[in-house]
Amino acid sequence: MINIKKTAGIIGANGYTGSELVRLLAFHPNVTLSFLYSRSNSGTKISDLYPDLTTVCEMVLTDQPEEVDILFLCLPHKESQSWLAQNKINEETLIIDLGNDFRLNGNFENRNFIYGLSEINRKQLIGAKSIANPGCFATAIQLALFPLAQKKILNDVYTTGITGSTGAGQSLQATTHFTWRNDNISAYKTLKHQHVEEILQQLASFNKNEISLNFVPWRGDFARGIFTSSTVKTDLELSDIHQLFRDFYADEPFVKVSEKAIDLKQVVNTNRCVIHIEKSGNVAVIHSAIDNLLKGASGQAVQNMNLAMGWEENSGLNLKPIAF
């Protein structure tokens, strides 16, 4: 049987999430990359910017988009909407936005963007034409809280989370210099992170009572990955919480609930989320770990594409974690 591949284009292919999409789609059985768009690096081979793509993809970046079946928007936050307004896209084209333009308000012209966290929105994502990819911290934190939200027992949540330097994007900033980031950890956007509103909006669909999320994000001295710890009060026994999480994620291909302690290297270079739960008295802590560039961005975008197109959900995502 002949496999007729769908065409895909990436807007903002020169960034970290864009280059990760190139790496994933170059080996996807159902996709052919048609163009890689970049305003700042037009005329440059993607492998000259990212040597790890040598022999994987030698395409030249362009500032002229083409008509494709699937369009990924990997632009800085708040730029996707203006780009779409300036470029007419076929209404049959599947658009997946990896920015934050449509996560809270998914309406744009005649498109209604579906929030792309498959673990809660799988049915809505099947056949969708417009998808808003969740944020990286938002993904890790929500996956740690959804089973408790479904039981309507969430009230005050206290979360800390640490992220790698790639979470800040490719543009050089004072806090991404090697000399500053190496052997260093710092808090940032304390209690004011942009993902909090996104998280609360989704949790509200499960847990109608008011939830308070107190989130302290940290910058880590490593390149990629997110590790979060969410503290909640509950009278449920630890064994009951474990069962609750196992039942909730029983059919999820990329979420693993572990009774053993977890670490970041279990998920780096994968589309997985691993979760571990601890409890003392009436206080429970839910740890979750993801790769911020994969399950937190490009891998999740491919997962959403697979669902929207009716393909196997794990197509192109059978990735092994980095061990050493």
Rank of each mutant, 00 (worst) to 15 (best):
I2C: 12
I4N: 14
A8E: 05
I11S: 10
G12W: 02
G18P: 00
L21C: 02
V22D: 06
V31Y: 09
S34Y: 03
L36S: 01
N41A: 08
S42A: 15
L53S: 05
T54I: 10
T54A: 11
C57T: 03
E58R: 09
D63I: 03
L73I: 12
H77W: 09
W83P: 00
N87V: 13
E92C: 09
T93R: 08
L94T: 08
D97N: 15
R103A: 04
L104R: 12
R111W: 02
L117H: 07
I126V: 11
S130M: 04
I131Q: 00
A140W: 05
A140G: 06
K151E: 15
K152W: 08
D156T: 13
Y158A: 06
Y158G: 03
T159P: 09
G161N: 11
G161Y: 08
Q170Y: 15
L172M: 14
Q173V: 06
T176K: 09
F178Y: 15
W180M: 08
I185F: 13
Y188E: 00
Y188D: 00
T190R: 09
E198M: 00
Q202T: 02
N214V: 03
W218D: 10
A223D: 13
T228F: 08
T234G: 08
D235G: 12
E237C: 07
D240S: 12
A250D: 07
K256N: 10
S258Y: 06
D263V: 04
Q266C: 03
N271T: 07
E278Y: 11
E278I: 15
G281D: 11
N282P: 05
V283P: 07
V285M: 14
V285G: 09
A301E: 01
N304K: 07
A308D: 02
A308G: 05
M309K: 12
S315E: 12
F324M: 10
